[in-house]
Design a protein around this nucleic acid. Sequence first.
DNA 1: ACACAAGTAGACAAGTCGGTCTACTTCATA
DNA 2: TATGAAGTAGACCGACTTGTCTACTTGTGT
Lengths: 187, 187
Amino acid sequence: MSAKRQQLILNAFALFYEKGVHAVGINEVLAVSGIAKKTLYTHFASKEELVCAVLEYRNAAYLRWLEQRLDAANEGVAKVDALFDALDDWFHDREEVLFPFHGCFFMNVSGEYGDPECAIHQQCAKHKVDVEAIVLRAVKTLDLSEQACAELAAMLCLLKDGAISKARVQGDKTAAASAKKVARQLV
Amino acid sequence: MSAKRQQLILNAFALFYEKGVHAVGINEVLAVSGIAKKTLYTHFASKEELVCAVLEYRNAAYLRWLEQRLDAANEGVAKVDALFDALDDWFHDREEVLFPFHGCFFMNVSGEYGDPECAIHQQCAKHKVDVEAIVLRAVKTLDLSEQACAELAAMLCLLKDGAISKARVQGDKTAAASAKKVARQLV
DNA sequence: ACACAAGTAGACAAGTCGGTCTACTTCATA
DNA sequence: TATGAAGTAGACCGACTTGTCTACTTGTGT
């Protein structure tokens, strides 16, 4: 049944996100989920495969959330504001779908899997590309050239990740507001 | 002898930085260092204490490097350029003292130690405060009000950490140059 | 009604983890 | 010269790791 699989992914994500992947054992995931070990290993060949599935899940959930937030905003500069307002809500745990804030899951995981060639690290890199694509789409509603849009999107992502990192490491939840100020100056 | 201690810290840092703290066991550190386990435990009460010492070492080395790079630049906007030029050299492994680039060690480690109350996480937060203080000192050579200096320093740090994160996760070593462009627009 | 897939609990294997300890060797200095 | 600190190698401990496997139970579709 796919329900068990989904449950495992969800519980694994919550634990991995809070404590780090290496710090959480399979047994802990199973205990929290109330699922037998054999069931896990019928759905996933290894812990690494579970980690990949978790990354995939989080990527989809995060993109869906971000897309929705940006779509809801008016076209033009309001899209830029919407990006950082969304971050602000995330940092302040006002978005249940994203789970309690512990920074960017993909930054955290790629820190644990040093080798840039490995599948896990590359999934993290892909997430950042996906996010930038969504930001780019929003930015294209501004009255700018193709090239200017691409550059602006890249810069906004730079600010976004800086803010996420600051909110995570220093616990400074106002980082989104600061980044918003900078973004305003840029557009 | 303090030489063994220093050797342990150095080798441990190289391994932790490359592979992550949880992914590296005490035994691996010892094997690489050619040092007996007992010696390690005469210098450090536990692995956690070793991790703390490693964080302390890296913080000092990084601050020294950054301070020197910023001091060497002319006063004024050149200081801002110097910051991102320094990052660019780091990303491209042109700074041996910083070891091969694997992102910000403190971001990586704080991702592995989720609890923001624990000593390790707080040491990571302190590093970011220390860095911002150095950036602030450099920014103060610009002709700006106290408040404007503080805000600019915070924004530059946001950009800096965004660039580090991008260079790390996506392997995009040009991130420093992009961040420099944004910074130029801000000053 | 019955077969079969999917679930359960949990013992077990093989290995690694952090950490302790014994027994021995250097080596500097009082 | 003798003592004690600091080093060595590595056996050992208990706990934990991922992953396999057995034996049993549940539930659904034909």
